[in-house]
């Protein structure tokens, strides 16, 4: 049920992002046949509005570094998103594995000793290292054989 809820949430987000691209009408061309840009940044619109409210206002400080072009700026924005998404993905991956290991450990403990189930939450962290140690132990002779 949770899976379906997550899927619906994702679809809703995609629709919310994609629909404006269709729904917003293209601005009519002006006398010179030029159309106003669509989907520019709200920040730029606010700057233009400052210009109309107070035409004499002069910004008193300029950015120290400005991306050399739109491409560079999209590179940096993509980098920012990738760093964040990468970290979230890593964390969720670790969590999934840890949860799975804890569940296997719980099942094993239950099978071995009836009282073992109680210790499961405390044993969860060391327990997930066991399969790795096993793999290393079995892998070693094979490496030596080479």
């Amino acid at each position: 049920m949770k899976h379906r809820q997550n899927l619906l949430l994702l679809i809703a987000v995609i629709l919310l992002v994609a629909l404006p691209l269709w729904l917003v009408p293209k601005p009519a061309a002006d006398a010179e046949g030029k159309t106003a840009d669509l989907f520019t940044g709200a920040d730029d619109k606010a700057r233009d509005l400052i210009g109309t409210i107070d035409p004499h206002y002069q910004p008193w400080f300029a950015p120290l570094l400005e991306p050399a072009s739109n491409e560079i700026s999209s590179l940096l924005f993509a980098l920012q998103a990738a760093l964040g998404a990468g970290f979230i993905g890593y964390y969720l991956g670790v969590s999934v594995t840890r949860e799975k290991a804890a569940r296997t450990a719980a099942a094993n403990a239950k099978a071995e000793t009836p009282s073992g189930a109680k210790r499961v939450s405390a044993a969860a962290a060391p327990a997930d290292e066991v399969p790795i140690a096993d793999a290393r132990a079995t892998g070693e002779p094979a490496a030596r054989a080479d």
Partner: peptide, 26 residues
Amino acid sequence: MLLGVAAAFTFVLSALKLPSVTGSCS
């Protein structure tokens, strides 16, 4: 690590400029 996730979430979402019904992006 979870604190890192909170920061990462802000990093991702504030990098995504999405189109909106007003015809501008934010």
